[in-house]
Design a protein around this nucleic acid. Sequence first.
DNA 1: GCCAACGTTGGC
DNA 2: GCCAACGTTGGC
Length: 141
Amino acid sequence: MSDIRNWLLKSEPGTYSFDRLQSEKKAVWDGVRNVEARSNLRKMKVGDVCFFYHSGEGKCVVGLAKVTREAFQDPTTKDDWSAVEIAPIGPMKKEVTLAQMKADAKLKAMSVVRKSRLSVSPVTALEFAHVLALGETAPPK
DNA sequence: GCCAACGTTGGC
DNA sequence: GCCAACGTTGGC
């Protein structure tokens, strides 16, 4: 399956929260300094839908965002790193915790569950649908 | 606060 | 090029 069209972005709410994304309407997702995360960023297409996950405080999927600009040079460095631009879609009706995802057999293989340190990770279509169901949230158009 | 996982650095 | 030491992240 190479047609990954969903992703999970992780942030500490104290550093950048989903609330802040909603009030600012968009964000440049920069500062990624991990090769695997960078390669995921570069695969994103405009319109791809991402889960927004809070690490540390919360440890849960709190909302949905979409990619509004594909990978470009990370403005915070001259080195070879990439950033994308995202915009909020809306909050999850119910937050989905890491514990819930870990406890769910269908999500055992999910990247965020297995590699908790990876800040940008792919989400399969099945995982995407299942997490939405856990969050009682309708899929975005 | 601790520890596991993982990345980076630097000595050799 | 190997590997030990160290730093960072994030879950518990």
